[in-house]
Amino acid sequence: MKYVTEFRDQHLAHQLAQTIAAEVDPSRSYRLMEFCGGHTHAIFRYGVQQLMPPNLRFVHGPGCPVCVLPMARLDQALALLHEYDVTLCTYGDLLRVPASGRQTLLKAKAAGADVRMIYSTQDVLQIARTEPHRQIVFLAIGFETTTPPTAVLLEQARALQLKNLSVLCNHVLTPPALRAILTPSLEHAMPLDGILGPSHVSTIIGTAPYECVPRDFHVPVVIAGFEPLDVMQAALMLVRQLNAGRCVVENQYRRAVSAAGNLRARELMARVFVIRSSFEWRGLGFLPDSVLALAADYADFDAERRFPVSVITAPEPSGCDCPAILRGLKEPTQCRLFGSACTPDHPIGACMVSSEGACAAYWTHRAYLAPTAAAET
């Protein structure tokens, strides 16, 4: 299959691994953060870390939208169900993420609440049109990748003059999260040498928004595709930048990402959304200008205005290291709950639930963990 098989070629992978091993400086270490959870799973699924020299390590970042959603926002969604008897629609991963007191949307559904898993925003539109007697709330979540479909939904709802559809918006932005990860502070800082920029996000926003990283933090960025050879080539590009003392944004994923990104999608997002002044992220705290809110023309579709509820910031479950894992400060196997109290069947932290979570990646591919990491489980 074009653009898939070529990027999983075992012979080319070993050639790339030999090139990386020959070009790394043995006197230094290379800490490269893959921001996106899709990269994390590719690294484990294809054994990319095992092909790297010992002084090059991948650090797992906060690029899992389900994982970075704080419990307070889930508590808010549960409150909407209990106080207003709405129909709540959202994507599958979010149904099992624990809120306060280990409550989940799936448990609320089992108890009788009207919670529905959807595959696209068009499912939400169809539900709202066919059930006009119900108030339909779409719990929207995701980075810039899933934001355009929500914008399309809102434009369609306004054109159809739907009065029973609203959106609880949790569309977070990638560049502010990168800045938080790299800003020197006791809470957030992680010493990093390079960043593997996200794939799908970059198809929307392009490469320009990452220019702040080398400019302000002197850390190079390489936008990388999702396939194993994409990740390895991006790592080689970062190694070469670091060895040469360069610090720029490069684009390995040129077959899908341009400098400007998807102009039509960006224009759509600009019409429908504005930037919210502050928003809480799991693991990163409250970050300024890091999430989208509905623009004034779409205020009538804002679930927070239509269904006000009172929620407070909720603490993480005792013993859960998801916040440190999302910042790259710990690996999942360093959490004492990993693989014992916390498993995919009985998740305690969000990182074990989502298909993009680092803990889920470690659990799924734990047989291939390095001996030191496997011993910790």
Rank of each mutant, 00 (worst) to 15 (best):
L12I: 14
A13D: 00
A13W: 05
A13V: 07
H14G: 01
H14R: 14
L16T: 10
L16E: 07
L16G: 06
L16V: 09
Q18K: 08
A21D: 08
A21P: 09
A22G: 00
P26I: 02
R28C: 05
S29L: 05
R31M: 09
R31K: 15
E34R: 02
E34V: 06
E34C: 03
F35S: 08
F35D: 12
F35V: 14
F35N: 10
C36S: 04
C36T: 13
C36L: 09
G37T: 08
G37Y: 05
G37M: 09
G38N: 07
T40L: 05
T40F: 10
H41V: 01
A42Y: 01
R45C: 08
R45L: 04
Q49I: 00
Q50C: 04
M52V: 07
M52D: 05
M52A: 05
P53A: 04
N55R: 11
N55I: 06
R57W: 06
F58Y: 13
F58L: 13
F58R: 05
V59I: 15
V59K: 04
H60N: 09
P65A: 11
P65K: 10
V66A: 14
V66T: 14
V66K: 13
C67L: 14
V68G: 09
M71Q: 12
R73K: 14
R73N: 02
L74E: 03
A77Y: 02
L81R: 06
D85R: 08
T87F: 00
Y91E: 07
Y91R: 10
L95M: 15
V97K: 01
V97D: 00
P98Y: 01
A99Y: 00
S100Y: 03
G101I: 00
R102Y: 08
T104W: 00
K107V: 10
K109A: 15
A110M: 13
A113N: 03
D114P: 06
R116G: 13
I118S: 07
Y119V: 11
Y119W: 14
S120H: 01
T121E: 15
T121K: 09
T121C: 15
Q122D: 15
Q122V: 10
D123M: 09
Q126S: 15
I127E: 11
A128S: 03
T130E: 14
P132K: 10
Q135H: 13
Q135F: 00
Q135N: 10
